[in-house]
Design a protein around this nucleic acid. Structure first.
Length: 895
RNA sequence: GGGUUUAUAGCUCAGUUGGUUAGAGCGCUACGUUGACAUCGUAGAGGUCGGCAGUUCGAAUCUGCCUAAACCCACCA
């Protein structure tokens, strides 16, 4: 029940900024988003945890808007919705930021102890951490904030260590010397997924090596001439006749004058470069393999920071790129450089630091993936875990079938430290243990040396890859390691939907699925919805470095969170990238204004001091009511279908159009009072409010703030009520199809008459004589009953609805769906214009008709097409013939 | 080099199992503020559905080839 508000209560403009803040607080204070296990069906979602020190960007906006729509809708259809928020410690990204900050303060990381550094990192995290979660609240994200987790908090730290130990015991984790992707800036190994290959213009250097004890030379081609310093062989293809004589001889490396063997291997492509390949086992993965095969020496020429090591004897301490320049100069002056060419090739860059990756041989921890990947592949292929869009199954399959072992150690401090403890002199003797005491015990057992003490064992210096903690996220947020049989995990796991970008399918999604089956024996989620990447109008990815990304908070400030959410979703077809355009947010904001004004109009029709009860009980005699109810139920059914397919933008467009086009443009218009200045009849107004309430529910998942605001304004709500926890409207019930069709007919009559007004340049407000000649008697009676609608929407002087009508002289006329409409214009009519108009319509229909005739006179069609289709075409033809006949008559009368 | 996807109005996209003279939103044009909304209303213009061939009575829709673009994977020095 509600009454007319005062002007101060309902300002002319919708004020999104104060309203949105108000509802954020209201929802949180009342704990509407907090979930505890109960008898309802669970609907759980884990957030893709943003970097703890990150700030909101457009990708987050899209990702979290989508999740919020799904979660709010699930909550409203009666599920126990639980959306778990949290942040990721993002080891390499955060550590890089902390190092940078310390450097500005004049502190080098190397000057600090591990503990000191970690203390700085925690300070940084405490200072910047969680900002992004506050920003998500502004967006309206309905997370269960009490359940906020952080990947480096104690419980999650322990879970990661337990997981490592478990996998080690199962034989999946091993330590090995491998060629890894080395990031010389962060000075750590990276997994293959963290390396981005970019196409660049490089120089291809042709360098001549002398062959020992002969006049011969071999010429090799390389893009990285500095690695010549670490060459330990020259290799040719055994079938390449040009070089057969050289095989087995010795080549002399320029600059260093090292003697290396000339070997043969199938790997070498005789067509590429010179057909001779220099072999640098320590700095190229292929060369490393060849080195192993041919038992070549391995010379490591680089320091961890990418400078040339002292042991080489040349360019010591110079950065690899500086060394490249120097060596080229020296080769040239020494006469060894034959030529240079430019070449387009792909170079690996660090995803985080953008440094050029150096392949580097080092001792790292690996996780064997073959067995882990098997169930994860099968359960996606058989749709236990469903991908939307399904096309991503293909690349998932390809990756899983060619999966390589995962390098999980990182030479960083910020992260979960590897629980390996060394007790010998080197790194060969170790035990895996959760605590130092346990490690000591195990080390004593294993070595037989009871004299070992805490000081004589030392823990591995490295931490684990960030993804080695985030792959457990759907389990650890419910404490599934701490207590594998707790109430939460049993209730919420597996979660329902995961919403993420395809970019991290391999980093994260695939690994979570593996972890789910490995540690819970069950999938982590049932559906994965991949959304696109946010791009600008030039299709460039939005990024900080390009500076082409708007600040999401400014957008929210300008257009409201509601408007911004709508803008994001409008731009977002399922599974495709979205071209973000600020105009779409403006459109969203305009929609807020439209809604607000529609509501304001309804309240303006309230009588002072009168009480109103919004209702959806319709008047069975009122065509507009039945039409509106039918449209609402139909739209609800269509939206249900869209939601089931994650076509959120389609669902949004439908409710947008239902509110704007159907409710505002037609329903409110026909509900207006006939008497200018007088209010809508009370019963009409109460139904309009009732429908409005239903529409606000349908819109709520997309625009949570304005809908909540209006829902509270429409009725006086008790303190513990909120739209956000109200029930989604029922789509069951009669669709009133006949009424909807009839209303559509009337709509097209009205549009046609408005068209005549416009074409004939009639003053918009001058009253019209309207004569309608319905195509049959039943329509005649139906239209007569609905005559009032014409009066509401057109300036009517008189209206005649009669099947026996005939066209008055000098009138404009049209045929709509077999019925005829005449507007007498006594002298006002421009005969030529009217003739032209009718002739145009006749031509139009004639073209249509000739197509139908052609089809129907085609024996093949009549014989082969289903009878249903043929009949439909015949019917269409009859209608068209009749319409052309009517139009021709109208035309004749004009002459 | 391998794989996947896309091509429909000026722009962004719909078009469900082949049977519409091809739809929406934005933009554009014209007209319009007597009781919400110019952040608005009404009307309108605009496409031989990338190209070529084929299957079919019938193709935007199915098949093949071609062209263009995007993305993913891979160690071409």
């Amino acid at each position: 029940m509600t009454s007319r508000p005062t002007d101060t209560e309902l300002p002319k403009q919708y004020d999104h900024s104060s309203n949105e803040q108000k509802w954020v607080e209201y929802w949180e204070e009342n704990g509407y988003f907090h979930s505890e296990p109960d008898e309802r069906e669970p609907y759980s979602v884990v957030i893709p945890p943003p970097n703890v020190t990150g700030v909101l960007h457009m990708g987050h906006m899209l990702n979290n808007t989508i999740q919020d729509v799904l979660v709010r809708r699930a909550r409203m259809i009666g599920k126990n919705a639980c959306w778990i928020p949290g942040t990721d410690h993002a080891s390499i990204a955060t550590e890089a930021k902390v190092v940078q900050k310390l450097r500005k303060e004049g502190i080098k990381k190397s000057d600090l102890s591990r503990d000191e550094f970690i203390k700085h990192a925690w300070n940084w995290t405490d200072e910047h951490g969680g900002i992004i979660l506050q920003q998500l609240k502004k967006l309206g994200a309905s997370c269960d904030w009490k359940r906020t987790r952080f990947t480096l908090e104690d419980d999650l730290y322990d879970a990661v260590i337990e997981c490592f130990i478990d996998l080690y015991n199962r034989g999946y984790i091993y330590r090995g010397q491998r060629m890894v992707n080395w990031d010389p800036v962060a000075q750590t190994a990276l997994s293959d997924e963290e390396v981005l290959h970019k196409e660049v213009q490089s120089q291809f250097y042709y360098v001549r090596y002398r062959v020992k004890d002969s006049d011969q030379v071999v010429t090799i081609a390389t893009t990285r001439p500095e690695t010549i310093l670490a060459d330990t062989a020259v290799c040719v293809n055994p079938k390449d006749e040009r070089f057969t004589s050289l095989i087995g001889k010795t080549a002399i490396i320029p600059i260093v004058n090292r003697e290396v063997p000339i070997i043969a291997d199938e790997y070498v492509d005789p067509e590429f470069g010179t057909g001779c390949l220099k072999i640098t086992p320590a700095h190229d993965p292929n060369d490393y393999e060849i080195g192993l095969k041919h038992d070549l020496a391995i010379i490591d020429m680089l320091n961890p920071d990418g400078t040339v090591s002292n042991e080489i004897g040349f360019y010591a301490g110079e950065d690899r790129f500086k060394a490249r320049k120097l060596i080229v100069k020296d080769l040239e002056s020494g006469g060894s450089l034959v030529k240079t060419e430019s070449l387009t090739n792909k170079v690996g860059y660090s995803e985080r630091t953008d440094a050029v990756i150096e392949p580097r041989l080092s001792l790292q921890w690996f996780c064997r993936m073959e067995e882990l990947s098997k169930p994860a592949l099968d359960h996606v292929m058989n749709d236990d875990v469903q991908f939307y869009p399904a096309k991503f199954k293909n690349s998932y399959q390809h990756w899983m079938e060619n999966i390589r072992d995962w390098c999980i150690s990182r030479q960083l401090w910020w992260g979960q430290r590897i629980p390996a403890w060394y007790y010998g002199d080197g790194y060969d003797e170790y035990v895996i243990a959760k605590t130092v005491d346990e490690a000591l015990k195990l080390a004593r057992e294993k070595s037989g040396n009871q004299k070992l003490n805490r000081e004589s064992i030392r823990q591995d210096e490295d931490v684990l890859d960030t993804w080695f903690s985030s792959w457990l996220w759907p389990i650890t947020v419910f404490d599934g390691f701490k207590d594998p049989d707790n109430k939460d995990i049993n209730y919420y796991y597996p979660t329902q939907d995961l919403v993420t970008a395809p970019e991290i399918m391999f980093f994260w999604v695939a690994r979570m699925i593996m972890a789910g089956y490995a540690f819970r024996g069950d999938k982590p989620f049932s559906n994965v919805y991949y959304h696109g990447i946010v791009r600008d109008e030039k299709r460039r990815k939005m990024s900080k470095s390009l500076g082409n990304s708007p600040d999401p908070l400014k957008l929210i400030e300008k257009y409201g969170a509601d408007g911004t959410r709508v803008g994001m979703l409008f731009a977002s077809p399922a599974g495709n990238d979205l071209l973000f355009d600020e105009n779409l947010c403006e459109q969203g904001r305009n929609f807020s204004t439209k809604i607000w004004n529609a509501f304001r109009f309804l309240t303006m029709n309230m009588e002072e001091g009168e009480q109103y009860n919004p209702t959806t009980e319709i008047d069975p005699e009122n065509l507009a009511d039945k039409w509106m109810v039918g449209r609402i139920r139909m739209t609800l059914r269509e939206m249900e279908d869209d939601f089931s397919k994650y076509r959120l933008n389609e669902a949004l467009k439908k409710i947008y159009s239902l509110i704007w086009d159907d409710f505002c443009d037609w329903f409110i218009e026909v509900s207006k009072s006939n008497e200018p200045g007088s209010n809508m009849p009370k019963d009409h107004l109460e139904r309009a409010l009732g429908f409005f309430e239903t529409l606000m529910k349908m819109l709520h998942p997309f625009m949570p703030f304005i809908t909540e605001e209006i829902w509270h304004q429409i009725s006086d709500r008790t303190k513990d009520e909120a739209l956000t926890i109200s029930m989604w409207p029922e789509s069951d019930g009669e669709l009133f199809e006949e009424s909807v069709t009839l209303f559509h007919t009337i709509q097209s009559h009205i549009s046609t008459i408005r068209n005549i007004q416009a074409e004939m340049n009639l003053p918009p407000r001058s009253p019209l004589q309207i004569i309608i000649k319905p195509k049959n008697e039943s329509l005649e009676s139906d239209l007569s009953d609905a005559e009032w609608i014409y009066h509401k929407l057109l300036p009517v002087a008189s209206i005649t609805i009669d099947k026996k009508s005939s066209k008055p002289k000098a009138s404009a006329a049209a045929v709509v769906d077999g019925s005829e409409i005449y507007i007498p214009l006594s002298g006002l009519i421009d005969l030529n214009k009217e003739r032209e108009k009718i002739q145009k319509e006749i031509d139009n229909i004639s073209g249509y008709l000739s197509g139908l005739d052609k089809k129907l006179s085609n024996k093949q069609f009549v014989e082969n097409a289903p009878a249903e289709v043929v009949n439909k075409e015949r019917q269409k033809r009859e209608e068209a013939v009749s319409n052309v006949g009517k139009l021709k008559e109208q035309l004749d009368e004009l002459t």
